[in-house]
Design a protein around this nucleic acid. Structure first.
Length: 610
DNA sequence: GCGGATCAC
DNA sequence: TATGGTGATCCGC
């Protein structure tokens, strides 16, 4: 599986190269999925030339170039630091590393059979089922950026994550299909139903990947792991018509690596023996390990670590060069250790909910507020679906130069409604506008973290819904059979989500009857196209002068907020040349006058974007 | 706790 | 002409 073309250092320079960074830059431009299967017969040299020329001069290219420069500088620092460390006495570091390796060795568990199952070119395969004629042509799924492509397309150097216009340069006859996520989800459900027969507590790693612990199945049926996997793959192919590849090993990490070795439609087993595992890892490129990406690969390469076997002779340096976590991770790579505990994804708690959208470069402030309002509405929907509120709200922007910035805040209470998300995010956006002259964005997103559950129904471990007090007992899942667990859980979640959306809509209806302004601001019929988003009606805040959602409660709360926050008062000073308005609420007017704001006509609130 | 960065899919 | 969205984790400060 070694592929010498992957080595950035061996990538010859083009004759016209003005400096030495193009080797690594071209490698970077090849994209993150270089190690994917189906690339063996590809002339990487030619491919990288085409990608390079297609990208050259673009803002994206310039940003990649900048990142490449920085990484090169970083690797140079690492090399120097390594040389410095090697002049010191490393015995204590060496001892510490060996102690850790010995400790890890004690934890080695060879009693389990873990498999990683991966659908081959999943989205493309599902599309081919609907349109068999696509099997004979190079084809990819995805619009601006490809999410998947079939193996015919890979022969041309086309890969997932590649911009579609670049893919078209590599393969002009490439057929591009829009992505149909619902279709893939339905097919994934069929595949999972079969996997559940082999391990009812299997773990979905993504829509097209899963980990299973088949130890019990092997014992109960008196079968060897490779035979079990052969049967399972055959059953999946027979029943669902999609082919899968699998890795079989003593733990998840090695199984994941192994599943890539005989793709497509193949399997690979690493025996549950210490020597065999260590030998397997020894010649394995570190890049094949899940968690080591293009950056870490280059950093490791700079100190001479290309294969997992190279980790051992460098063990005394790793903590100092890359940190304790990285050392521990690499130690596990060297020994071929990983987790054997496989558990359903429902058991692991979510840490954040987010949304983001890319658009044409926007510098106009009102347009940006419209995008923010769109993001707030999207996030509200996702928070309702997942039944969370956030105690922390983060704004993410990508400048037209592709530079990414994030700003976060802890609202006074957990938030989940679009107007609240907008209200707390807007000051962060405004501050960025103030700090960055002529700020132009190509992406804007919102993320809630520090989540608080708003779940009204309990779902226990086996996916059974605990009915709400005043409602009918839910009909979900009459079957107590283990093999149904995944599907039951899914249905339970869907039912819960539907109920929650219904509740939410009822609340909304009530709210809109009480305060008409809210129903105007929370226009639920927002356009489906983020490029033509409707902006909310806005009033200017009299304190900070920034536009706020035109809702009495929100507006008054905002003014309270402005009056109470020192940081906002600073903004008032900054914008003192503009005459702020006085709130129409008498209490607010009094507070404003105490804050030294001159009184003006309260009717002077105006609507933005209209 | 915040912001930047990396990684996977 | 033109390079995605969601979620997680780690590091340095």
């Amino acid at each position: 599986m070694e592929c010498s073309g992957e080595n950035p250092a061996s990538d010859p320079q083009p004759e016209s190269a003005p400096d030495e960074e193009f080797g690594t830059l071209k490698y970077q431009l090849l994209g993150p999925s270089l190690t994917k299967a189906g690339q063996d017969s590809v002339d990487q040299q030619k491919v990288s030339e085409i990608i390079y020329n297609a990208s050259k001069g673009s803002k994206f290219f310039n940003h990649e170039q900048e990142r490449d420069r920085n990484l090169t500088l970083k690797t140079e620092r690492i090399v120097k630091e390594k040389a410095r460390l090697e002049r010191l006495d490393l015995n204590s570091e060496l001892r510490r590393a060996d102690e850790y390796l010995a400790e890890l060795e004690l934890s080695r568990d060879l009693s389990q059979h873990v498999i990683h199952v991966d659908c081959d070119a999943f989205f493309a395969a599902v599309e081919e089922l609907d349109r068999p004629e696509l099997k004979t042509v190079p084809m990819a799924v995805g619009k601006g950026v490809l999410t998947t492509c079939n193996y015919l397309a890979r022969k041309f150097g086309v890969r997932s994550g590649m911009a579609s216009f670049v893919a078209k340069k590599l393969c002009p006859q490439l057929v591009l299909l829009p992505q149909n996520y619902d279709k893939y989800t339905a097919k994934a459900k069929e595949v999972r139903a079969i996997m559940a027969e082999y391990d009812p507590l299997f773990e979905s790693a993504s829509i097209d990947e899963a980990y299973l612990n088949i130890t019990a199945y092997c014992n109960e049926n008196n079968l060897e792991p490779d035979e079990v996997v052969r049967r399972m793959r055959a059953e999946i192919l027979e029943t669902t018509k999609v082919s899968v590849s699998a890795g079989i090993a003593a733990n998840a990490k090695v199984a994941k690596i192994a599943s890539n070795l005989n793709k497509p439609n193949g399997q690979f087993q690493v025996p549950n023996e210490r020597e065999a595992i260590i030998e397997f890892m020894r010649d394995l490129s570190v890049r094949k390990v899940n968690g080591i990406g293009r950056v870490f690969e280059r950093e490791l390469e700079s100190i001479g670590v290309k294969k997992c076997g190279d980790i051992f002779p460098h063990r005394a340096l790793l903590t100092k060069l890359f940190g304790e976590k990285a050392f521990q991770f690499l130690a596990q790579c060297y020994l071929g250790l990983g987790r054997t505990k496989i558990e359903p994804i429902e058991t692991h708690e979510r840490k954040s909910v987010s949304t983001e959208t890319t658009f044409h470069d926007i510098g106009d402030k009102e347009e940006l507020r419209a995008k923010l309002w769109w993001a707030a509405q999207e996030l509200e929907k996702d928070l309702a679906r997942t039944q969370f509120k956030g105690r922390t709200l983060a704004l993410k922007v990508k400048l037209h130069t592709f530079e990414v910035l994030t700003r976060q805040t802890a609202p006074s209470r957990a938030v989940s409604l679009a107007k609240d998300l907008y209200y707390f995010a807007l000051p962060m956006l405004a501050k960025l506008e103030k700090d960055i002259p002529n700020m132009k964005l190509r992406l804007l997103g919102l993320r809630c973290s520090n989540l608080v559950s708003t779940q009204k129904v309990g779902i226990n471990f086996f996916g059974v819904v605990t009915p709400k007090p005043a409602t009918e007992p839910t009909p979900v899942s009459a079957s107590g059979v283990d093999t149904d667990h995944e599907i039951c859980a899914e249905e339970a979640f869907e039912a819960a989500a539907r109920q929650e959306i219904q509740d939410e809509m009822n609340d909304l209806e009530q709210l809109s009857q009480e305060t008409p302004a809210v129903s105007v601001a929370r226009r639920p019929e927002a356009s489906a196209d983020p490029e033509v988003v409707e902006a909310p009606p806005m009033w200017d805040c009299p304190i900070c002068t920034r536009p706020q959602i035109a809702d009495d409660r929100i507006f008054n709360e905002h003014v309270d907020f402005c009056l109470s926050r020192q940081t906002i008062r600073e903004v008032v000073q900054d914008t003192s040349e503009e005459t702020p308005l006085i709130p129409h609420n008498s209490r607010k007017r009094k507070m404003a006058s105490q804050a030294g704001i001159p009184e003006t006509d309260p009717k002077q609130k105006r609507l933005f974007f209209q």
